[in-house]
Amino acid sequence: RLYKDLAYLFGLVTPREDYAEEAAQWLTLLREKLGPGRHKILELGVGAGHNLSYLTNDFEATATDISPEMLELCKKLNPGVRLHQGDMRDIRLGRKFDAVLIHDAIVYMLSGDDLRRAFATAAAHLEPGGIFITGPDYYRDTFAGPRLEHFTRSNEALELTYIEYACDPDPSDTTMEIIFFFLIREKGQLRIEHDRHTTGLFPRPDWIMLMQAAGFAVEPRMITSGGAPHELLVGTLSQVP
């Protein structure tokens, strides 16, 4: 629901400014790998386009997402970006790019086959030597759940109290659950909505193995996100399997 009928809350749940610190490091990394110039980049699973919005001044951007509601939000924030609706596991645009990015949407890959297909999509849109950057929120090896996050934010239309609970009900599989509660105060009335997402949770070696199987030489790079260390996996396409 967060990406459909509750998509209008997204700007309060994850404001654009929350992405500034991390996006600056993605920009530095892209410049390091691609060099100067207005290179062509593709983001798969762009969502509302918050991270991408910090890159569009420097790069010619194209983006995809499975949700039409999120693409509408992205269009408002990034009017110059070419947008396409589609699933990162099988979309093919028939074009090549200098770099492919998958930000936090990668968490919705629930199986090893899902990851394999997403990485194949990235490879299909790159020439040899092209760059692929992604990074999961959690690895199974290091997930110390359950975890709880909550805050209250408001805009001119409403006040939102947001509660997020992340847990791993079955440590033997490749998924975890994130449960959201939205307490929405609008026009003097309070209503409560909820949403439940199943996301992927894989051992770190599986990520690297599957990227390598897709033809990427993998380089882990540490950045900070929200003041905390966060690992990105940077792939250079050596060959298309």
Rank of each mutant, 00 (worst) to 15 (best):
Thr142Glu: 05
Ile131Ser: 01
Phe182His: 12
Leu73Val: 06
Ala217Met: 12
Thr62Asn: 06
Ala120Gly: 11
Tyr162Val: 02
Glu69Trp: 09
Arg16Gln: 15
Thr14Gln: 13
Leu158Cys: 02
Pro171Val: 00
Met211Lys: 01
Phe143Val: 01
Ile184Thr: 04
Thr198Ser: 09
Met70Phe: 07
Thr62Asp: 12
Phe10Gln: 12
Ala217Lys: 14
Tyr108Glu: 08
Glu17Asp: 14
Pro205Cys: 03
Val240Ile: 15
His150Cys: 08
Asp65Val: 05
Met222Asp: 13
Ala122Asn: 07
Ala157Ser: 11
Phe202Arg: 02
Glu17Phe: 13
Leu2Cys: 10
Ala166Gln: 14
Pro169Trp: 02
Gln189Ser: 08
Ala166Gly: 14
Leu110Tyr: 06
Pro241Val: 11
Ser154Tyr: 10
Leu6Val: 04
Ala61Val: 12
Asp104Glu: 14
Tyr138Ala: 10
Leu6Tyr: 03
Leu27Asn: 12
Thr198Ile: 12
Tyr3Val: 09
Met211Asp: 03
Ile41Arg: 07
Thr224Gly: 08
Pro68Arg: 03
Glu60Gly: 05
Ile91Thr: 12
Ala217Cys: 12
Gly112Gln: 11
Thr142Pro: 00
Leu9Asn: 01
Ser154Cys: 04
Phe143Asn: 02
Glu60Arg: 12
Asp173Gln: 05
Thr142Asn: 03
Gly49Cys: 07
Leu201Ser: 03
Ala120Trp: 02
Asp5Gly: 04
His194Gln: 13
Glu156Val: 10
Phe119Arg: 06
Arg31His: 15
Pro128Ser: 06
Asp114Pro: 11
Leu233Lys: 07
Leu71Thr: 05
Thr64Trp: 08
His194Arg: 15
Ser53Tyr: 11
Ala99Ile: 11
Val234Arg: 04
Tyr8His: 12
Lys76Tyr: 06
Ser67Thr: 06
Asp137Arg: 13
Asn51Val: 14
Asp114Trp: 09
Asp5Cys: 04
Ala105Asp: 10
Leu210Trp: 11
Ala61Trp: 04
Cys167His: 13
His84Lys: 12
Leu233Gly: 04
Ala217Leu: 14
His39Thr: 05
Gly235Met: 06
Thr121Ser: 15
Pro205Trp: 01
Ala7His: 03
Phe182Asn: 01
Arg31Thr: 10
Leu110Cys: 04
Ala48Asp: 10
Ile102Gly: 07
Tyr3Thr: 03
Lys4Ile: 06
Phe151Val: 00
Tyr8Glu: 11
Leu232Glu: 08
His84Cys: 08
Asp168Glu: 13
Met88Leu: 15
Phe182Glu: 00
Pro36Trp: 05
His84Pro: 03
Arg147Glu: 13
Gly145Cys: 04
Pro128Met: 01
Asp168Cys: 11
Asp98Lys: 01
Thr199Glu: 14
Asp168Ile: 00
Asp195Ile: 04
Asp137Asn: 14
Met209Gly: 08
Leu52Glu: 02
Asp65Arg: 08
